[in-house]
Design a binder for these strands. Sequence first.
DNA 1: TCCGAATGTGGGAGCGCTCTCACCACATGG
DNA 2: CCATGTGGTGAGAGCGCTCCCACATTCGGA
Lengths: 353, 353
Amino acid sequence: MNEKSRRSGLLHAGRPSPTLEDLATAAGVSRSTASRAINGGLKVSPEAQAAVDAAIVALGYTPNRAARSLVTRRTGSIALVIPEPDARVMMDPFFAAVITGVNEALRGTDMQLVLLMSRAGDDSARTMRYLRGGHVDGAIVVSFHEADDWAETLGTTGLPTVFIGRPWATGFGVPYVDLDNFEGGRLAARHLAGTGRTRLGTVAGPADMTAAVDRLEGWMQGIREAGLQPGPVVHGDFTTAGGADAARTLFSEAPELDGVFAASDLMALGVIDTVRGRGHKVPEDVAVVGFDNHSLLAANGLGLTTVTQPMVDMAVTAGQLLIRAIENPEEQLEPVIYPAELVVRGSTAGHSR
Amino acid sequence: MNEKSRRSGLLHAGRPSPTLEDLATAAGVSRSTASRAINGGLKVSPEAQAAVDAAIVALGYTPNRAARSLVTRRTGSIALVIPEPDARVMMDPFFAAVITGVNEALRGTDMQLVLLMSRAGDDSARTMRYLRGGHVDGAIVVSFHEADDWAETLGTTGLPTVFIGRPWATGFGVPYVDLDNFEGGRLAARHLAGTGRTRLGTVAGPADMTAAVDRLEGWMQGIREAGLQPGPVVHGDFTTAGGADAARTLFSEAPELDGVFAASDLMALGVIDTVRGRGHKVPEDVAVVGFDNHSLLAANGLGLTTVTQPMVDMAVTAGQLLIRAIENPEEQLEPVIYPAELVVRGSTAGHSR
DNA sequence: TCCGAATGTGGGAGCGCTCTCACCACATGG
DNA sequence: CCATGTGGTGAGAGCGCTCCCACATTCGGA
């Protein structure tokens, strides 16, 4: 009469997926023992463990995440929050690197990556609700702007969070992974000055992103250290088109520039385009330094001198940090800062002093 | 004595998140009525509905997905399966476009995107288990190779699935979204022939991907239709470096080529590099046609003639298709094929017949 | 010999939700 | 007047799992 036992299980498939109860029966143990055998196997006799293991294979058993999650209050997934407005920005390989890296960190864990891409205002509230709703065990936030209040909100909410890139407000104890952007900018300045360039222009990143601000400050400091005068500064949006536009403005203000620092490789590409469009040569007339060491561009005919940013590694570290934060909520995690390195290529070569 | 009522709720945060029971109490209705009010509100009096709505706001109530999922057998998330081996390939903006598009399709739904990136053999089995385990309501599979048996396995498993790109085995009734790659290849051939190029080389994509094969076949057909002889064919891996390598092989076999079709823009970039490296000019000596209409390269100095592939749109369509498949499992969905269009730019200009 | 402690096991409760069902009130029709 | 809906409601079961607790067994030391 207990014939209703063959319930639905998996919605779509033919046969219903076996439950823990089924597994226990097949293994000849109780539900409790089966559960213990699956999770770490403490206080389980070798025989019972073996029986359960065998039954798992035989039945193709997979624990029901929802049921487990309901009681453990762990979802087994983390969110990658990307608060960027449009597809254009997504094309930036930075995101590809972040996704790859975070995924890499999750390998071996049975955690899954949930992508949370939120747009303007209203949508970000929805994202926030989702995050606070306990649907994920933690979050990695990336590419945030000053206007976003992720750091504050998440910091106070108690949800384990790691930022990629220094957040504007560091007072909330939220750990982050970042590049030494200041030093990167400084290296660029020192290098350009070292090759004899003296009239330096800047295509900075968005003023509401810490990475852009730090790069700019380092660059300025480097220029001062070299005893040069900082030239004009124009802000771009990290895209190629934005870099080209910024460069046009730059050269219309100061046509005699012989060196430009762009705060991203994509923008540097735009700068080079503009320089060439004006009938000048890179690097003979104008040297260009980028930032990111973007692999797509490395293969490009003219090598681009740039500052290395190990994005994948940084993302991996962020993922690992988050896992630690989830597993050990009390531990106070320190920010991780990667050193910046300059890669010299063709775009800053051959200037006859 | 029922004072244990204030249980944990959300693991991390201070206050526990309210349950449906709390909500019902606050609204002065029963749990059942509250549930109905939340889900569609059929057979709920306006007063009750209003009371529940107010309570939701007041308490900041969010339904517990796990609990809901446990009984509905719907997880409210779909998987994006990317069976690519390494980060290098992830840099291809194709993936960025797919992610953006699918996410776009999910907007408005309360579905979430789970990223499943699997590597070689073993790992793909894990992915497969995850998919069959009922952890997601559906899957979008992208960039599959012939060796993968996703189409077969998923097709028979009953999990709603949509492919981006035609799968090798179409017999399983799995719907897909694709570009008319054949026509795209044909357009490229017709265009090159039309500009007077006669000695045509090919940098094809990986032979185990349908998109590459279809492009190659269309290209060959176009060459034949133009009354020309197909030149040498070398296979690349869709990356810039791969394209450059392939082009080297190509030109060592047939140095006199005056036109090359590369099955992706990234490879076309590599081809151009190689051509220039050999001291020849694009397009004067060698015309190059790419494939994808990759936005990153559009801004490049020399415009690349290419075949448009509306990747974001295609991904949106795939997402919508999947949602329909999930909501209406019986419906037989048809593949959607986008037309290919040629975009003529500088890389195929100015050949003096 | 007997008593903890350690080790292994199974029963039961309960996580927060949906859904079936019984029920009530009131309308409508014979 | 009673049969038959019909909109609205609430109690109760149960989804598959983990965890607490009670219980059985074994082992070491007093």
